[in-house]
C-alpha cells in the first residue's frame, strides 16, 4: 500500500520531466536555432498536428499501419508459437530446426526488404512480411524457453492425475506453465515489429501508413509533420506495451501475483 502511494507521488516527477523537456525543446528551437527545418519547436509541431487532423490523413495512416503490423505480428504468432512449442517439447525437432533458426535470426529484418518486394510485390503483404521477420524470432525463442523450463514436478503430477498423452501434457501442463514466458515473447515481438514498421512502409507498399507519410512529409521538407508522425509512432508503441502491462498480464497471468512481489 505504502509502495503504491509512493509510486503515485513519483508519477508527478515523470510528468514534470516531460514538461521540462518540452520547455527546453521550445527554448532551443524557437530562441536558439530559430530554423524550423532543422528543429521544429513543440508549438510548430502542435500546430502541424492540428493541421494534419483537419486536412491530413492521420486516421487512414493509422489504419493502414495497423493492418501491416497486424499481418506481421499475427503471422509471427501463428507460425512462431507452434515452432517454439515443437522445439521446446521435442529434443529431436529442436536439434533439427535450431541451426536453421540460428542462421536466419541474426539477419536484420530490413535486409529482407528486397525479397519482400520480389515475393509479395508492392502490397501490404510485403510490409507485413518485414514486420513478421522482425517479430517471429522473439516469439519462437520465448515459447521455446518457456517450454524448456516447465518444472518436471508439474509434468509428473499431471501424469499421476491421468494426463498422460503428449498432446494433453502440452495443452494442460506445459502451455499454461510456459504462458508467462510466451507473453513476454509476444511483448518483445510487438516492440520489435513496431520498430520495423517505418522501414516496411518506406518502399511504397501503400498510399497510407504512419511510416509511409513520415517519409512523404520528409520529401516535402515538412519537418514539423515528420515530428508529429514520430511522436504518434512512439505513443502508439507505448500504448501497445501498456496493453500488455496492464491488461494481458492482469487478466491472464493473475496467478503469478505474489510470486514475484
Amino acid at each position: 500500500m505504502g509502495n503504491h502511494e509512493l509510486n503515485h507521488k513519483n508519477r508527478w516527477l515523470g510528468v514534470f520531466a516531460i514538461l521540462l523537456g518540452l520547455i527546453v525543446w521550445e527554448i532551443i528551437a524557437a530562441l536558439i536555432i530559430r530554423y524550423p527545418f532543422i528543429m521544429p519547436s513543440p508549438t510548430d509541431v502542435f500546430s502541424a498536428f492540428l493541421d494534419l487532423l483537419r486536412n491530413g490523413t492521420l486516421f487512414l495512416d493509422f489504419q493502414a499501419s495497423l493492418v501491416h503490423f497486424g499481418l506481421g505480428l499475427g503471422a509471427a504468432l501463428i507460425i512462431g508459437i507452434p515452432i517454439g512449442i515443437g522445439m521446446g517439447w521435442s529434443r529431436k525437432f529442436d536439434a533439427f530446426l535450431d541451426p536453421v533458426i540460428e542462421i536466419l535470426r541474426p539477419i536484420p529484418p530490413l535486409a529482407w526488404i528486397p525479397f519482400a518486394i520480389i515475393w509479395f510485390g508492392l502490397t501490404m503483404y510485403s510490409a507485413g512480411f518485414v514486420i513478421f521477420i522482425g517479430s517471429v524470432f522473439p516469439v519462437i525463442i520465448n515459447t521455446y524457453s518457456g517450454f524448456r523450463s516447465v518444472p518436471r514436478i508439474f509434468v509428473e503430477a499431471g501424469k499421476m492425475l491421468g494426463c498422460t498423452k503428449n498432446w494433453d501434457l502440452i495443452r494442460y501442463i506445459a502451455f499454461p506453465s510456459a504462458l508467462p514466458s510466451i507473453a513476454a515473447g509476444i511483448r518483445i515481438a510487438t516492440g520489435v515489429g513496431w520498430m520495423c514498421l517505418v522501414a516496411a512502409e518506406l518502399f511504397g507498399v501503400s498510399n497510407y501508413g504512419l511510416g509511409k507519410n513520415l517519409w512523404q512529409y520528409y520529401n516535402l521538407h515538412r519537418m514539423d509533420c515528420v515530428v508529429v508522425y514520430m511522436l504518434l509512432l512512439g505513443l502508439i508503441g507505448l500504448f501497445f506495451d501498456m496493453i500488455f502491462r496492464y491488461y494481458i498480464d492482469r487478466q491472464f497471468l493473475k496467478w503469478r501475483t505474489g510470486e514475484v512481489a
Partner: peptide, 20 residues
Amino acid sequence: TGPDAKIGIVFQEYSLFPWR
C-alpha cells in the same frame, strides 16, 4: 507399468499447478 489412476501421490515439493 506406468502411472495409474489407482495410485495417487503427494510430492515433497509444491506440485500444485500455479495457473489453476
